[in-house]
Structures are given as C-alpha cells and as structure tokens.
C-alpha cells in the first residue's frame, strides 16, 4: 500500500477502535451494542491488515489471539448468565443493581453482556477475515 494509506491508517485506526469501544459501552443507552461495536473494532484490525499487509500483523499470531479472545468473550457471556443461575436461581437473572436510567453504570448485567459480545464479535469477525485471507495466500502458491 502507498504511504498515504499507511499514514492515514495509523491516525485513524486508534479512533475507529475507540469508537467501537464507545458503541459497546453505551449499548444499553443508545442504538448499537456489542455486535455493532464489535464489528467496528474488528474493522480497525482489518484496516491494519489491508494497509500493512500480513507481515506486519503476523497472521498466525493474530489467528491464535483472535481465537483466544473469541473464547473469552463467549465464556464471559455464558458465565454472566450462569452467575444469574447461581445467585438468583434464574438463567440470565439480572443480579446486579439496576441503577438510574440513562446512567453509564446502570441496567445491571446488560453492559457486561455487551462487552462480552463485543469481544466475541470483534475477535470472531477478525478470525473469519484471516481465515478467508489465508486461503488466498495458499492459492497463490
């Protein structure tokens, strides 16, 4: 890629990543949430790959990390649900205090769920991209 793309990517990637985090954490207040934010975060990674090529990211490492993070995301989501089962004897029971409406720390477990989903989706989407991109490289040989 050209230097223009690389430079702009360097500047933008952080912003995109941050925006993704914003969307995730405000999932219970505004439109958006775990899935949308996760997609945006993964888009920032994908942008990095597109701009700097596979050497920069070390595809294989990226693959392993995305797999680990995906599992962690799914696991934490499930654990939140199971905590509900343990603490309130209902699956997905909202065991945290609900707080005040329209505050960031409110509505119990929902922000936590959003974060878990965000991790899961961003890692998963990135892994999908890598998997399809990896196939392309095999085809070249």
């Amino acid at each position: 890629m050209t230097i223009i793309v690389k430079t702009i990517t360097k500047i933008l990637v952080g912003l995109i990543f941050l925006y993704g985090i914003y969307i995730i954490t405000h999932g219970h207040l505004t439109p958006g949430g775990g899935f949308a934010g996760g997609v945006i975060i993964s888009a920032s990674f994908i942008l990095l790959i597109l701009a700097f090529g596979s050497e920069e990211i070390k595809e294989k490492i990226g693959y392993i990390y995305s797999s680990i993070f995906e599992s962690i995301g799914g696991l934490s989501f499930l654990l939140i649900a199971l905590f509900g089962l343990i603490l309130g004897s209902y699956f997905f029971y909202n065991f945290l205090p609900k707080g005040k409406v329209f505050m960031l720390f409110s509505s119990g477990i929902i922000p936590l769920c959003n974060i878990a989903i965000g991790i899961k989706v961003s890692a998963g989407l990135f892994a999908i991209f890598l998997a399809i991109a990896a196939t392309r490289f095999i085809m070249k040989e």
């Binding site: 797999s67 599992s71 799914g74 696991l75 499930l78 649900a81 199971l82 089962l85 209902y90 699956f91």
Partner: peptide
C-alpha cells in the same frame, strides 16, 4: 431449574476447549 444447563453446559465446554 437446571434446565438451561442443557444448553449452557455444552456451550461452556465449547468455549473452554479452545482456551
């Protein structure tokens, strides 16, 4: 009230195994 475990347990396994 263990009913959700029918899906939760295998999901737990599915997420634990890659780690």
């Amino acid at each position: 009230n263990y009913l959700p475990l029918f899906t939760a347990l295998p999901l737990l396994g599915a997420f634990l195994i890659p780690l």
